[in-house]
Design a protein around this nucleic acid. Structure first.
Lengths: 194, 194, 194, 194
DNA sequence: GATGAATGAGAGTTCATTCAT
DNA sequence: AATGAATGAACTCTCATTCAT
């Protein structure tokens, strides 16, 4: 039923990022988004099924771009170690450059009933998949410890990066996020122990 | 204004954990909680200021217990390495034993407007503090790499554990959570590289 | 924010007069008015900001018509004495012909917090102004006693008429109100003394 | 059921005058009055049947005193003209000396559903009676015009005084109220005409 | 008599969504 | 496709009143 293409689709999406980031998901009215996008309230429902659908679509569009961009970057890397380093950097850098998106991703998106959310978890799965592939490659090529459980490792990596971003968003961003990619990588790759 | 002690305070809190875990924060009506607790709707407002206050108080009570229990455990450990291992294990084990609390902490709690939430971040700070102290101790005693930035390390550790728990909660818990403490510790302490 | 024009605006206003007069302001539910007006509950809030706003708007619309009609009548009078007579008669006659409005004006309107009510006092001021102008004219043309304080005189006149109406409304109207205009005028113009 | 005597009865009444005058009837909570009176919430219900009953009792006590005092004053007057003059003065002076009571009488009392209020109209009737008796006496003794309808005259007199007081209360009392008794009497007794 | 914790009915208002134009 | 007026379900919170102690 939802159209999901066209100029107005984009205006609404851009308006939504802005307004969600400013007021938060629950405090945002659909009419606020419509006004910011310069369309009528009803028009929003030509392009989206619901208010929640806007937020989810937002995330999907972002993830699609993110995953594509990440793939390109990874393809240019020589080995798994480089790839992991690149992945961390790309994640942090992308969100640093788009603070509204970062706010929506780290805070607003989590206000949606997680119980069902196919719409959120599916696009994430693609990213998770990529992380796991990097790990597997690292094991196959003898860079990473072979006894590591891939799935657990992925959770640790993603959780670490995600928390670093969340901290940054909540702290109102007084420091560079992408500068943290090196220490995060170092921690994850070499660990704490001497 | 809110009373915050007494038998009914506890009944309401226990009822809220159960109901929030079952239906989710937004789908829960205050009257649902009141009914489960066996009190009148109005009684809830003698002990709590608002529906949101219930959720936050829930978290605060849980964190207080958690932090206390963790402190006891850490005090019994010989060195920082052990402490870190214990911390990870305690975090996973505690939530595994209280799946309702885990659900509320990992999913429902994040549906509250993060923008203001002193009530959520303050108790977390205490936990963050403890993690950072373990790291510092590890550095002082020569177990952990001294060049590591303590704050970043804390985010990596907490993020990793938190993501492991979230995954478990969302997966409907078909596997043991506490069994993951060993691999998570191994990853964080030794890293990926061979 | 409130629209304040259109067909439905009027339906709601008319419904409100009827229902307020029948049940009283506090016992009337917004949904009662909506049903009587044949609109949805929410529609009321497109045209009015609040339940109180309906009552105040009601009064404002009535006063606007009242003041306009009165002006026309006064313009047709030859002198101040005639004007005062006409004013009293017009006031009593108007409310006698609109018993629902009379009830709302004399009883329900006064149940609103007087502390703030700009919305009530402003329209009244216009009427007070007209009364005072009649008095001044009477003094200028040598009909009325020149030493009389205009403001006090206005209060006496308005208070007298208002009380006569209130008595009539509370007595459930078993007698003609407009028939009292002659004796009221006589009392106010000539006084008690022989 | 209500006790209506005793030390606490009085404390509650005095507290109520103060709080009603300050916050208005509807914005006052029974617990506010109880706190001000230094008693428990439940105690209020030993002495009064309801919140409305407090307000009405307040008025009744005031009117009883008022009517008694007025009677004493009138008894000391030589003739009906003097009595009318005294009555107006006494009314204005009494409320001027008790501004909290004035506020409650002129504004808060009218927020009660007038439709039924026996409790308000009965005490008023006594006062109305007294006014009418003064008028009759004036007619009998040849001071007042005999053709005047007593009831209408009473409404005109009471309405005039009442409006003068209401204006004063709403204006936040920047002028002397009792000073107006002379001009009001002059207007009512001699009228407007030259 | 006095207390105050507990009750629970009650309604104004919001806003996502629809649909006639 | 676009509009925006209209809909009506949904729900938190207040507070007068009660009653066991």
């Amino acid at each position: 039923m939802a159209k999901r293409t066209g100029e107005k689709y984009l205006s609404i999406l851009l308006a939504a990022i802005k307004i969600f980031a400013r007021y938060g998901y629950h405090r945002t009215r659909v009419s606020d988004i419509a006004r910011e996008a310069g369309v009528a309230d009803g028009t929003v429902y030509i392009y989206f099924n619901s208010k929640e659908d806007i937020l989810i679509s937002l995330f999907q569009e972002m993830m699609e771009q993110f995953v594509q961009g990440l793939q390109t970057e990874l393809d240019a890397c020589g080995n798994a170690e480089e790839k992991l380093k690149k992945l961390i950097h790309y994640h942090l850098e992308t969100l640093e450059k788009q603070p509204d998106q970062a706010k929506v991703t780290q805070l607003e998106l989590r206000q949606i009933d997680q119980s069902i959310n196919e719409g959120i978890s599916r696009p994430l799965m693609d990213y998770f998949q990529m992380i796991e592939e990097v790990i597997k490659e690292g094991q196959d090529t003898g860079f990473f410890r072979p006894e590591i459980n891939v799935r657990t490792a992925r959770k640790v990596i993603f959780g670490a990066i995600d928390e670093v971003v969340t901290s940054w968003v909540m702290s109102k961003k007084p420091y560079s996020l992408s500068n943290l990619s090196e220490p995060v990588f170092s921690l994850l790759s070499r660990g704490f122990l001497i």
